[in-house]
Design a binder for these strands. Structure first.
Lengths: 188, 188
DNA sequence: CGCCGAGTTGAACTGAATCAAGAAACGTGG
DNA sequence: CCACGTTTCTTGATTCAGTTCAACTCGGCG
């Protein structure tokens, strides 16, 4: 759990009291490889911290679904859209490898927002951080070619390229596995 | 200024005291049509409320820049990435028509976060809202064809299509003006 | 050992980009 | 309020990156 406190501290210094309250709400849960932890149509009830593992966010499609995110250890994961709106999720989440999560329910998080000093500030900064990520991605999808997106990914998250099947990466940068295979050949 | 209070109230009920503090920081400013209010390289110092007008966010490019957002009256505008990080902005903002803004500086907003009860909560919910918008857009860019994006735009923001030159809309949905012109012909 | 999913490669096809030119709409100054 | 110049939109021809369909290879696992 210390990883979680460290992660939060990076955002905003959290007092012992607030941390105790926060951590009392966390529940640990383990998943095997290739387990679906949220299906289309379900409403996301959790904000989870990844202690260990890798997860994939995707919209299933016959013959190649659309993968639009990966989450690694020491970050938070959620179908955050669905979590925030409490409407059914448009996408699925699955584990790619054995994964350990610490989960917080929607209700508990709202209690934290109400009952701790730092809650809303952490929530704000976290939402801002997520906004920045999506904002960057929007620009990349609009202005970069798939090839450039692949090279950026390579530069910024080399571990991703090693650990994740090519077909998911292809989809993440917006092309088919065949096209990515050709790009790879071209640039190497 | 009442519009602003109403907008904030939609997010979270704001007390008179907090509102007075908040509104004391706002400064009104007017722009003419086609004025650049933030250039590439500048760091965004303002979060602004649009009392009236239309603005465009874009990355300039020789022969067709990349437009990735429009903002209308009664919402907030900012190069929010740059504002949050206080790093130089990657993009420009310009007015498309005569525009009136109420501006809040970065420092003042942080004072509001520190000195009002409701500040962080409003900030959080606002950032969450922005996240939801970007998240939706990411999915649309990945899974929809340009044609479908155009039709969605048409459905969701018909006023946008009437008020904004086609070439900006084309860029917003990720294609050239020529291609959009052809899509238009095809579907009508 | 044989199967199966992942990755590669080839060929044909397609939607959008690019280059280019003309038509329409817009606004600005006389 | 008209005339002219500029910008925006349309249309055509060509090119190109990526899709689709299909076959083949490779590596891991039952």
């Amino acid at each position: 759990m210390n990883q979680i406190r460290n992660s939060l501290n990076e955002i905003s210094n959290i007092s012992d009291a607030d941390w105790n309250y926060f951590s009392s709400k966390l529940k640990k849960i383990e998943f095997n490889k290739k387990e679906t932890i949220l299906s289309n149509g379900q409403t996301e009830n959790y904000l989870s911290f990844v202690e260990n593992g890798i997860l994939r966010l995707y919209i299933p499609k016959v013959d190649n679904d659309i993968t639009f995110g990966f989450v690694f250890k020491n970050s938070f994961i959620s179908a955050y859209d669905s979590f925030l709106t409490q409407l059914p999720s448009e996408y699925y989440i699955e584990t790619l490898v054995k994964t350990t999560l610490w989960r917080l329910t929607f209700d508990d998080l709202n209690k934290i927002y109400r009952n701790t000093k730092i809650g809303n500030e952490i929530g704000r900064k976290n939402a801002e951080k997520l906004f920045l990520i999506k904002s960057k991605r929007e620009l990349s999808l609009l202005k970069d070619t798939p090839e450039k997106r692949y090279l950026n990914l390579f530069k910024e998250r080399p571990q991703l390229i090693k650990q994740i099947p090519l077909k998911y990466i292809a989809s993440y940068i917006g092309i088919t596995p065949q096209a990515l295979s050709r790009i790879r050949r071209r640039i190497s």
